[in-house]
């Protein structure tokens, strides 16, 4: 891999790849680093129905594959590697990756977020053995079995609807007495005979020897704790921003989100941010795409001052 770049984009999800398309078209030597798989977390969803321009539902992995190819068409290099440190040195930036250090005039940080876990007993041990964060990947394992979805947002209800195609019963366990998901998703969930809701409830633990067997569920209103048998449990309780590398460089809020205005500049020369790690951001592909473009245009203005 070349060591010196005009722009290095950290994160290969919708924000990072959208930024890369614009950097590539600005004829900047651009590298995108992605530590997992190109496409970001959206590839875990089975369909997208609200991305403007597509009247029919689209498969996220296909959409993201097109974005990757669009980047490559404009000379952007996509590299599967993890940025482990970021620092300003001289007039540019240094990024440590797996086995070397890279240099760039500008950085667009679009590293997205990580799955939030409940951090209760049994969760870590049973992850991959019944506890899951991806219904699209794992639903077939639970054909004609009872599963739970934990959460109340868009992701939780999309997962529940997908699981209902396989499982005998899907229980959505939510800590409040109403969902915050899109109304169209709520309507589908309420109309689906296979899906039930368990309101006002917290999961206190996951039980099972070698695979998940039951959930310990606490009803906040009645105070009652039940051990409910489930073979699968899908976590959809939100995310935490992947901003560890920015901690000493830019302003973060108490939850670790970057505080940024519409310019997506950070106050550090040549460092821009995009995507769901920004405070107040709603997790939507369309928003991430727009932010990626905005950051790339700001980045290009900055690079033009160096030319």
């Amino acid at each position: 891999m070349d060591k010196i770049w005009d722009v290095i984009i950290i994160g290969g999800g919708p924000a990072g790849l959208s930024a890369a398309i614009y950097c590539g078209r600005a004829m900047r030597k651009t590298l995108v680093l992605e530590k997992k798989v190109f496409g970001g977390q959206i590839v875990l969803a089975d369909i997208i129905e609200n991305y403007p321009g597509f009247a029919e539902p689209i498969v996220p992995a296909d959409l993201m594959d097109q974005m990757s190819k669009q980047c490559q068409r404009y000379g952007v290099v996509l590299e599967n590697d993890e940025a482990t440190a970021l620092r300003r040195e001289g007039q540019g930036w240094r990024i440590d990756v797996y086995q070397e250090t890279l240099e760039a005039k500008a950085i667009i940080y679009a590293a997205g977020s990580l799955h939030r876990f409940l951090e209760v007993k049994g969760e870590k041990e049973l992850l991959g053995r019944g506890v899951s964060v991806c219904a699209t990947c794992d639903a077939p394992f639970f054909t004609q079995r009872k599963v739970a979805v934990i959460g109340g947002g868009d992701t939780a209800l999309v997962e529940a609807l997908h699981l209902a195609k396989f499982a005998s019963r899907v229980s959505v366990i939510h800590r409040r007495d109403q969902f915050r998901a899109e109304r169209i998703l709520q309507k589908r969930v309420f109309q689906n005979d296979k899906i039930e809701t368990i309101w006002d409830s917290l999961v206190l633990g996951f039980q099972g020897e070698r695979k998940l067997e039951a959930l310990e569920v606490h009803n906040k209103k009645t105070g009652r704790i039940d051990i409910l048998p489930f073979e699968g449990a899908f976590l959809a309780i939100g995310t935490i921003p992947n901003t560890a590398l920015l901690r000493d460089i830019v302003e973060l809020d108490v939850n670790g989100y970057v505080v940024a205005d519409l310019s997506l500049a950070t106050g550090q020369p040549g460092l821009y941010v995009a995507g769901e790690l920004i405070r107040g951001n709603r997790r939507q592909v369309a928003i991430a795409v727009g932010m990626g473009v905005q950051a790339a245009l700001g980045c290009e203005d900055y690079l033009a001052t160096l030319d």
Partner: peptide
């Protein structure tokens, strides 16, 4: 892996 698993497919080049 399974054909329906998008992350599986994306991990293949690695």
């Amino acid at each position: 892996w399974a054909p329906t698993c998008a992350p599986c497919r994306l991990m293949e080049p690695g």
